[in-house]
Structures are given as structure tokens and as C-alpha cells.
């Protein structure tokens, strides 16, 4: 690999000074002025950097999908996308079902408690003793009927 491979005149110059023909003829004895030094990047590194930048840019611009390498794996990508879609749908449907189950369980719990309370109130209000007590509060004294009961009409 020749030295020229490592020379890049266009970039990474750390100085405003223009390189001159003398620059190539400097000797070890004559140290170059610091403001005249041009540091160049190896071409391989530069290419890798450019490729990386281009790839990143293509990701944003969408050109990545026409990349020949990528386009070869369209079927795999589509499959992965499909699997991801299924995964998302499953996740959300399970979430939805679970929320629904929780909601229904809560409704059952509330309804059950309401039923218990209503029944408790019904019991307390409709027993023989409760009716006797309620009537007694109004001054109505009921006594046991010792006469035979007569049914007038039965539905």
C-alpha cells in the first residue's frame, strides 16, 4: 500500500494553510511547522464511516428497503413483522380480556353484596316479629287468630 492511499486532501485538515510542494519533501531533520500538519484518515476507515453514515441516513429516508441486501430478506422481514403483529394483538387482546374479567368479577362481587344486604333488610322487615313490632308502634295489637281460616279466593 502506497503512502498516497492514506492521503486525503479534502478532509480533516486541522489548519487553514494550503499544502505546498515542499510539504512532501520535508526531512526528519526539519520538523514541519505544527500549523502545517495535515492529518489524513485511512481510506478503509473512511469508507466504513461513510457506509455507516449512509446506512443510518437510509434508515431515516427509507432507502434501506431498496438496499439489495435488505431486499433479499423481504420475506423474512414480512414474517417477523407478521409475528410481531400477532404478538401485539395477543398482548392487547389478553389485556382487554383481563380488564373485562376484572370488571365482571367486581360487578359480581358488588351484585352479590347488594343481594345479601337486600335480603338482610327484607328479612328484618318482613318477619312475623317485625310486623308485630311495626304494628305495635302504631298502636295496633295483633293477636293469634283462633278462628278457622277461610280462603275466599286463591289465585
Amino acid at each position: 500500500m502506497s503512502n498516497s492511499d492514506y492521503i486525503d486532501n479534502s478532509t480533516l485538515s486541522t489548519t487553514d494553510a494550503k499544502p505546498t510542494a515542499d510539504d512532501n519533501t520535508t526531512t526528519p531533520q526539519a520538523e514541519p511547522e505544527m500549523d502545517q500538519v495535515v492529518i489524513t484518515m485511512p481510506a478503509k476507515l473512511k469508507r466504513a464511516l461513510i457506509a455507516t453514515v449512509q446506512f443510518i441516513r437510509s434508515l431515516f429516508t427509507g432507502e434501506v428497503i431498496i438496499n439489495p441486501t435488505v431486499s433479499k430478506g423481504y420475506d423474512y422481514l414480512a414474517y417477523i413483522a407478521f409475528l410481531m403483529l400477532i404478538s401485539i394483538v395477543t398482548l392487547f387482546s389478553s389485556l382487554h380480556m383481563q380488564i373485562r374479567e376484572n370488571h365482571l368479577s367486581e360487578q359480581v362481587r358488588l351484585t352479590r353484596e347488594r343481594a345479601v344486604r337486600t335480603e338482610e333488610q327484607r328479612i328484618k322487615a318482613t318477619t312475623h316479629s317485625a310486623i308485630v313490632r311495626a304494628l305495635a308502634e302504631r298502636g295496633i295489637d295483633i293477636t293469634d287468630c283462633y278462628e278457622p281460616v277461610t280462603i275466599i279466593k286463591k289465585e
Binding site: 312475623h128 293469634d144 287468630c145 278457622p148 281460616v149 277461610t150 280462603i151
Partner: peptide, 18 residues
Amino acid sequence: KRVATYLYNREEEWAERL
């Protein structure tokens, strides 16, 4: 007597029919 009266009064089949 009170228990017997209650039982007797609540049994429809023992009640008289009009």
C-alpha cells in the same frame, strides 16, 4: 298453643273454603 295456632293458620289445606 301459639306454635300450634300459627301452624294451623298457615296451612292452606286445613283452611275452610268459602
